[in-house]
Design a protein around this nucleic acid. Structure first.
Lengths: 131, 131
DNA sequence: GATAAGGTTTCCAGTTACGGGAAGGTCAAG
DNA sequence: CTTGACCTTCCCGTAACTGGAAACCTTATC
């Protein structure tokens, strides 16, 4: 399998696949012409990586998850711990964004949005007490 | 005012303040010894930037907001448009994270998390139908 | 005047996870 | 044999800083 087909079947861009090889996530074989020769196993790993990435796992987390996936003697507790940590990180990020959202939504609703210069959004950013 | 005091009063690290000068967000004067000599106006700009950044505005959005803030002939509509766009981006990001969160929370709750290898999290990432 | 501590400067490199684009080798069709 | 579609490597750029090195300035102390 050449890279274009793997890209199509895995949903990952060729650039990303080459990058994953560069950082050691996959090790596809090489044909005589220097082209990467992907096996089905490589494709499965890439699909795994694509799904893990789409859940927001970092590359390093993906590396660990991939290693656990390939380790028949793994303990599911190790996987669960990583997933829970990531879940916490997601929750923290959501909370941060919700905070921003609340403030911003309030400011936006207070702004006339016309051609006059008076603007509660800028006033808030400037540190003027809104009270 | 030297950079350390401005950092203390604005809440921004010295490194960030230098960076903001480098990209043209501020233009502090210089003393004879080469040190940056910050005026109160610089401090206010930095505080403005700190608040805008904490609401998630990008540097380029901050640049625009700062220009609007300094433009007495601005229309509040211009500010509101930027804020609304950013609000949409935040909502999109939250939605994306909520999606991840839902999937992950489900997988985590299904995983025994013991010393056995069976793991629905890995099974899902591997693409096995959960049925 | 020498020295040491602490603040300041610039510059360079690294971070995350790729994407764009150049220069050049390879393969299948006509 | 040429054309066009692949493939390869290599290097730069992204956002918004952070860390660290080497060197200069200031102030206090001896």
């Amino acid at each position: 399998m050449n890279i274009a087909e793997v890209a199509r079947r895995s949903g990952l861009p060729p650039k990303t696949i080459r990058y994953y090889e560069e950082i050691g996530l996959i090790r596809p074989a090489r044909s005589g012409n220097g082209y990467r020769a992907f096996a089905e196993a490589d494709l499965h790993k890439l699909a795994f990586l694509g799904r893990a990435r789409s859940l927001g796992f970092s590359i390093e987390e993906c590396r660990t998850l991939l290693a656990l996936w390939e380790d028949r003697a793994r303990a599911s507790a190790d996987v669960k711990r990583i997933a829970r940590q990531h879940l916490s990180a997601i929750d923290a990020k959501i909370a941060e964004l919700e905070g921003m959202r609340a403030t911003l939504a309030n400011l936006v609703s207070c702004c006339a949005g016309d051609d006059r210069p008076d603007c509660p959004i800028l006033a808030d950013l400037a540190g003027e007490a809104t009270s």
